[in-house]
């Protein structure tokens, strides 16, 4: 899991990444020095839950939220959320691919 997060963090513009439970508790995190990781975990779980309810899907979807000062991306699965926080100039295309790959690896690991 740590390896997955480190691969994601190696992408240009990424500030940090984490695996979060659906309850907002951090399972694993990496390189989030400038970010309140507990807050990010709580926010991602909250937004993920809202999306789940609105689109009526519990897993297998990805959310990208672009703010004026940064981007949050996260993939939602049955038991966990893989979340990434990045700068506006990050390589979003590459990041999305890495998140998808990472989700598959974590699913296998938690399997």
């Amino acid at each position: 899991m740590k390896e997955v997060l480190e691969r994601i963090n190696s992408i240009s513009g990424v500030k940090g990444s984490m695996v979060v439970g659906k309850d907002g508790i951090i399972i694993e995190s990496s390189a989030l020095s400038s970010v309140d990781s507990d807050l990010l975990a709580a926010m991602v779980a909250k937004v993920g839950k809202e999306m789940e309810e609105r689109i009526n899907a519990r897993k297998n979807f990805m959310v990208t939220v672009n703010g004026e000062g940064g981007i949050i991306l996260f993939g939602v699965e049955e038991d966990f959320i893989l979340a990434v926080i990045a700068r506006k100039d990050a390589n979003i295309g590459g990041l999305r691919l890495e998140i998808k790959k990472g989700i598959e690896k974590i699913k296998e690991e938690l399997g």
């Binding site: 309140d36 689109i55 979807f61 990805m62 672009n66 703010g67 004026e68 981007i71 949050i72």
Partner: peptide, 17 residues
């Protein structure tokens, strides 16, 4: 969420299913 994480105002969002 963006406000709480101090990431500025909302610009766009994408939900991929």
């Amino acid at each position: 969420a963006l406000e709480k994480l101090e990431l500025g105002g909302f610009e766009s969002g994408i939900v991929e299913l």
